[in-house]
């Protein structure tokens, strides 16, 4: 069952997979809580998706179809590299279509196409601790989570409002899961935050270097922190995608010349392609 000779299915040995699987089950049972796990040294560098890769390796099987995206795109170098890793070590089928995938590993985006029941979204997480910039000590933040003492985060967001007139956090925007745990959604733009709420898919988060796994089960409340007088809002663009014409997707700004020329295109390449196909079919 091996793709690359000499290594086990999906690279990790069985004992490691079991350890990760046990951590994932506990993570699902305690939504938003970061489960410590014995993260292994992977053949890819820390910070480059080792947490997501370990979660995917523990979850994936021969019946799965894997999609890997980075910044919403299937063809960025790191996404290509990770997809190849699994094609090689697990011989697993891959796809670029969100609708065809059973497991989607992502860095920094949630696909535009709504996910469905049975799909698993695996996030690569650099820093899992939402309170880290407020309190660098793990011993302290652990206590804060135990007591659900999240006042410091509210103060920080409120200071933003006092200073800038708005909350100046645009990505990795903190959320409260199931009304209990403060959670970092990984550096997705806050544009994607609402997609986490009551999502039919299972969302798993892996932080390899920091050795933490956490989860949001399907149909779970995920609330972006806000205030009554400053409700949470997402980014909007005045433009539509220059390629597919999408007006409601997250757009990347592309610099076209050195005289201020800009164009905007979908960050989600699969969404952009399917929108184009739909548009062409309609014409």
């Amino acid at each position: 069952m091996t793709g690359a000779t000499g290594y086990n299915f999906a690279y990790l040995d069985e004992q490691t997979k079991r350890m990760i699987r046990r951590a994932i089950l506990k993570a699902v049972a305690i939504p938003g809580y970061q489960v410590p796990f014995g993260s292994r040294e992977m053949p890819l560098p820390y910070g480059w998706g080792t947490g997501g890769i370990q979660v995917t390796a523990a979850v994936i099987g021969p019946d799965d179809r894997l999609k890997v995206i980075d910044q919403g795109a299937d063809d960025t170098t790191n996404a290509v590299s990770i997809r190849r890793f699994f094609a090689r070590t697990a011989g697993v089928a891959t796809t670029e279509r969100t609708t065809e995938a059973t497991v989607i590993q992502t860095r920094h985006r949630i696909p535009e196409t709504p996910l469905v029941e049975g799909q698993i979204l695996v996030y690569q997480v650099p820093i899992p601790e939402p309170l880290r910039w407020l309190e660098p000590r793990e011993t302290e933040t652990r206590k804060m989570h135990a007591l659900a003492d999240y006042g410091a985060m509210h103060v920080k967001l409120y200071e933003d409002i006092a200073r800038f007139g708005r909350i100046a956090t645009t990505y990795d925007y903190p959320v409260l899961v199931n009304g209990r745990y403060l959670m970092r959604p990984s550096p997705i733009p806050k544009f994607d935050n609402p997609k986490m709420h009551m999502n039919p898919a299972l969302q798993l988060f892996g932080a390899g270097r920091e050795k933490r796994i956490y989860a949001v089960p399907p149909y779970t409340a995920v609330k972006s922190l806000d205030f009554e007088d400053h409700p949470f809002e997402v980014q909007r663009w005045d433009q539509a995608c220059a390629i597919c014409g999408s007006a409601d997707s997250f757009l990347d700004e592309v610099v076209t010349d050195d005289r201020g020329g800009r164009m905007y295109v979908c960050s989600d390449t699969d969404h952009c392609t399917s929108q184009q196909t739909r548009k062409e079919a309609a014409e």
């Binding site: 997979k17 699987r21 089960p217």
Partner: peptide
Amino acid sequence: PDPVIDSQRVFRVVLDAMAR
């Protein structure tokens, strides 16, 4: 019967059960 693949399959149904 197949410790590698069967463990994965069993885990996935347990994960599915725990998630729902």
